[in-house]
């Protein structure tokens, strides 16, 4: 089984977002593997362990994504590939990323490609289905279960609370929804081993791509923080008094207790 995982490095979900110079301020921010991609990596490892084969984790980004790729290797992936666009691209969009990934994947004869269903930063959820279409393979998004039997697959898809049981066949691209599995933490031996596993770095040139081929179709013209809404009452004073006031307000003003 030849398995590929599409991974993105993202801001930690707990990070507060600030803006400087019209861009999201990354100084001092913690970065992580996009949480949905962690499910993808875990699922890939489990499928490989059950079926045999190899897991390659691919990321489009900058050198800094090496850290998250190493983490994926420490979790148990076999190989990692960074497609480094730092020198070639200033701005890309989902068209760009999907084009790059599909160019990389087109001759890899992947049986199974797993991605997160959405990245928690951009939040578009486009790249998985786009890549599948560009490769001419079928896809199922937001999956919570995957069973592979020979060249056929049974997939459970989360559809706004309901589940669809879908039958399809390989090659297949799926995108992971929470609940698919519980991603493992890298073990210490895993971390040691990861240092010796291959992490290849490619650039657009290596994929016979020019900047023009992957030029974004959309452009961000402004990033801003949401306006401070007229929220309710944030209590003040000693904590003890705040608690008393809150209970009083819920009892007498809101009348819910």
């Amino acid at each position: 089984m030849n398995i590929y995982v599409l991974m993105k490095r993202t801001f930690d979900t707990e990070e507060k977002i600030t803006i400087s110079g019209g861009k999201i301020n990354e100084d001092g921010a913690e970065f992580i593997i996009n949480p949905y991609d962690e499910y993808a990596i875990e699922e890939a490892i489990q499928v490989r362990d059950a079926q045999g084969g190899e897991v390659t984790v691919v990321s489009v980004g900058t050198e800094e994504a090496e850290k998250q790729l190493r983490t994926a290797l420490a979790m148990g992936a076999d190989k990692a590939v960074l497609i480094n666009t730092e020198d070639d691209l200033e701005d890309g969009d989902q068209f760009t990323t999907a084009k790059i990934l599909s160019e990389y994947l087109k001759d890899k004869e992947a049986d199974l490609i797993i991605a997160g269903n959405v990245a928690i930063d951009g939040g578009s959820g486009q790249v998985g289905p786009r890549v599948a279409e560009l490769l001419g393979i079928s896809y199922v998004t937001t999956i919570t279960k995957l069973e592979i039997n020979g060249s056929s697959a049974t997939v459970v898809r989360d559809v706004e609370g309901d589940s669809e049981v879908i039958e399809t066949s390989l090659p297949l691209l799926v995108t992971a929804q929470q609940g698919l599995n519980e991603p493992r933490y890298p073990s210490l031996p895993g971390i040691m081993k990861a240092k010796k596993k291959p992490l290849d770095e490619l650039e657009l040139d290596d994929l016979d791509l020019d900047e023009d081929d992957v030029e974004a179709k959309t452009k961000t013209i402004e990033i801003y923080l949401p306006p401070k809404k007229e929220a309710g009452k944030v209590l003040e004073g000693e904590l003890e008094d705040q608690v008393k006031e809150l209970v009083n307000l819920l009892h007498t003003e809101a009348k819910v207790v």
Binding site: K16, I24, E215, T220
Partner: peptide, 17 residues
Amino acid sequence: RPIYSGKAFEKKIVTDG
């Protein structure tokens, strides 16, 4: 559209097509 799960917003335009 919201980005970072609504922690920020971006304004986008279509540049091609």
